[in-house]
């Protein structure tokens, strides 16, 4: 019985990891290539979820909702880049952090005005609402399985884009030496806008697929942003491969900690003490992981190659 629980929780952890990866991929690209810290990445996650909720309500189909919301978030992302963030690339990190913090306040309030303080729930279509037996006698929600499949597909597509295409080559070149890429005649401004839009769409997609599970609400972006930071710091800033592996590690540790830490602690301390310590420790687990990684490898586990 515990083994099925273990399996179920590892899948949940995997699924959280996938959502974190979609967030972290955009963050790490934007940071790695433009040297830009964007706190408002969480807002794009929220906007994605809320737009998807609205479109789902209009069209009556979750799938159509996602398909409509994706380009919409892309446009929002490009608008944000062109209007506000473009001027910040040359500024120091503190300015970028503060200005994007201002963007968060703006977007949260905008969302509160447009969607109301409660946010919106996204009802799942019937074909996603059930559960599948992944092993005989072990049912698992279809939707969560779907999230994992979609996430892996997006990760694969991203890998293909970055490693196999000309655009991807420019992205990688930009990550290791942006000035040189500019000197070679590449339109850096356009490349930046493109990458930012891509990151925005990924964050929006993360929000959309998380929304049916956690509900689309104001402030959802802030709660995922910091774990996403943990992911890119652990993985090595600028590295997509690092972000993928670190996202899975963080997702698994967080989920496993919340489910099993009390049992684990209970084996060597009193049940009472374990019950008090477990929630505190599991809430802190991923941050402790980050501190440990940084202590031994300040540049993260998989720093991108060729950075001077």
């Amino acid at each position: 019985m515990t083994w099925t629980l273990l399996l179920e929780q590892s899948l949940n952890g995997f699924q959280l990891g996938i959502v974190l990866f979609l967030m972290a991929a955009g963050l790490t690209l934007v940071f790695g290539i433009m040297d830009m810290v964007n706190l408002a990445h969480g807002s794009l996650y929220m906007i994605g979820a809320l737009l998807c909720a609205t479109f789902t309500e209009w069209t009556g189909s979750f799938l159509l909702g996602v398909l409509l919301a994706l380009p919409a978030v892309l446009v929002v992302g490009i608008l944000v880049e062109v209007v506000a963030l473009r001027t910040l690339y040359k500024r120091d990190h503190l300015d970028q952090v503060l200005a994007s913090f201002g963007l968060i306040l703006f977007f949260n309030e905008l969302a509160r005005i447009v969607w109301g303080p409660e946010g919106m729930a996204i009802p799942l279509p019937a074909w996603l609402d059930g559960s599948i037996e992944i092993l005989p006698g072990v049912p698992y929600p279809t939707y969560r399985l779907m999230v994992i499949v979609v996430g892996l597909a997006v990760a694969a597509a991203l890998y293909w884009l970055v490693v196999k295409t000309r655009t991807g080559m420019l992205i990688r070149a930009g990550a290791s030496n942006r000035t040189m890429v500019g000197a070679l005649g590449v339109n850096i401004g356009l490349l930046f806008t493109l990458i930012f839009g891509l990151g925005a769409a990924l964050a929006g997609l993360a929000g959309m697929i998380a929304a049916p599970i956690v509900q689309a609400n104001i402030g959802m972006g802030e709660s995922i942003l910091i774990p996403a930071f943990v992911v890119i710091v652990v993985g090595g800033i600028g590295s997509i491969r690092g972000a993928f592996i670190a996202a899975l590690i963080v997702g698994l540790i967080d989920t496993m900690g919340r489910s099993f830490l009390d049992v684990l602690l209970g084996t060597f301390m009193s049940a009472n003490a374990a019950e008090t310590a477990a929630p505190a420790l599991s809430a802190m687990a991923i941050y402790i992981l980050m501190a440990v990684v940084l202590f031994f490898r300040p540049q993260g586990l998989f720093p991108p190659q060729g950075r001077g």
Binding site: H93, I226, P279, A283, Y287, M290, P298
Partner: peptide, 24 residues
């Protein structure tokens, strides 16, 4: 031990750790 943007993120994450500690 870290610099620049890593420092920003670490201080942020450590603070968030205390926030979650408070929540729990």
């Amino acid at each position: 031990r870290t610099k620049g943007v890593y420092f920003i993120m670490i201080t942020m994450a450590l603070a968030q750790m205390m926030y979650f500690l408070g929540l729990s």
